[in-house]
């Protein structure tokens, strides 16, 4: 393979992985704190993308500004979602609770997907933001500017999350709940509130990813569940309890898709799952799992 092509594929893969990583980190946070696999994660991503489009289209705002407006609203959505649908299940026994909660999120995912394909705001639900920033070209290597901007924002958000967890009191409580729920409760932490906060932050990150999705690609009602599945794979591959692992997992999958996809697009999609199996065989807890 040509060196220039290899470099190009590596860049594409890393940029792609970064975008995967953000929503995956959000899902990992929710899972780590509350123990619930939020299968509706991808739906929030899709809905956010749709609303970002509406804000951009109707109000004429810069799309990134639209994301900055819409994504924080989804913190509230995630928070209320946990309070309304997940918390009522908290009174059941542990293993039943987690299974029920996960099924509830699956139900919500299916309902949202169905409902949005019924809706017809302004035609169909398939939207894409018309924006183009000229690509930076270094020799024969193309650096898609839009994707670079998005990647930078993703890094910033993940870094912000990391700082939040390390240096704020609520962040400390979130870490505590993730590591030892019972212990946190007995130390006075209101774990219900922490659960809701985790859902809020995680959903906010999915919403940001959705906003970026409608900017650099497009959204449609059925993109939610396949993406959620991909994020689950990334989380398991990266190892539970480690954001660095999730970010690494995202990049590995991005690279795998780009490199293998060059030879065969169909295998490019499958390689993600093959890598998952391979990594788990070698390291059952995931790359950086605890």
């Amino acid at each position: 393979m040509d060196l220039a092509i290899l470099v190009q594929l590596l860049i594409n893969g890393i940029l792609l992985g970064g975008v995967y990583a953000m929503a995956a980190v959000g899902l990992s946070l929710i899972f780590g704190v509350s123990g619930v696999l939020n299968l509706a994660h991808g739906e929030f991503l899709m809905l956010s993308g749709f609303f970002v489009y509406v804000v951009y289209d109707r109000l004429g705002l810069n799309p990134f500004l639209a994301v900055a407006l819409v994504a924080p609203c989804f913190f509230v959505v995630g928070y209320l979602f946990e309070m309304g649908l997940i918390r009522p299940l908290a009174l059941r026994k542990e293993h039943v609770r987690l299974a029920s909660a996960t099924l509830v999120t699956l139900g919500v995912a299916l309902i949202v997907e169905d409902a949005t394909s019924f809706a017809s705001l302004g035609g169909s639900f398939e939207k894409s933001v018309d924006i183009f920033v000229p690509t930076l070209v270094l020799g024969t290597v193309f650096l898609p500017s839009l994707k670079l901007v998005i990647f930078a924002v993703v890094l910033a958000l993940i870094a912000a999350l990391f700082l939040f967890l390390k240096y704020t009191y609520i962040g400390l409580a979130v870490q505590a709940v993730t590591q030892n729920r019972r212990g946190a409760v007995l130390n006075g932490v209101n774990t219900f509130r922490i659960n809701a906060i985790a859902f809020g932050i995680g959903t906010f990150m999915a919403a940001a990813a959705g906003g970026f999705e409608v900017i650099h690609s497009a959204v449609a009602p059925d993109i939610g569940l396949p993406l959620t599945l991909k994020y689950l794979s990334i989380i398991v591959m990266g190892g539970l309890g480690s954001f660095a692992g999730v970010a690494l997992g995202g990049v590995i999958i991005g690279l795998g898709e780009a490199l293998v996809g060059f030879y065969n697009p169909a295998w490019g999609q499958t390689v993600a799952y093959l890598l998952l199996v391979a990594i788990l065989l070698v390291r059952p807890k995931g790359l950086l799992g605890k």
Binding site: L172, Q175, A176, R182, G183, A184, N187
Partner: peptide
């Protein structure tokens, strides 16, 4: 069962 990933100091701080 302490908070394994946190420092001794932060473990105490939670309470």
């Amino acid at each position: 069962r302490p908070f394994l990933g946190l420092s001794v100091m932060n473990n105490v701080r939670i309470g």
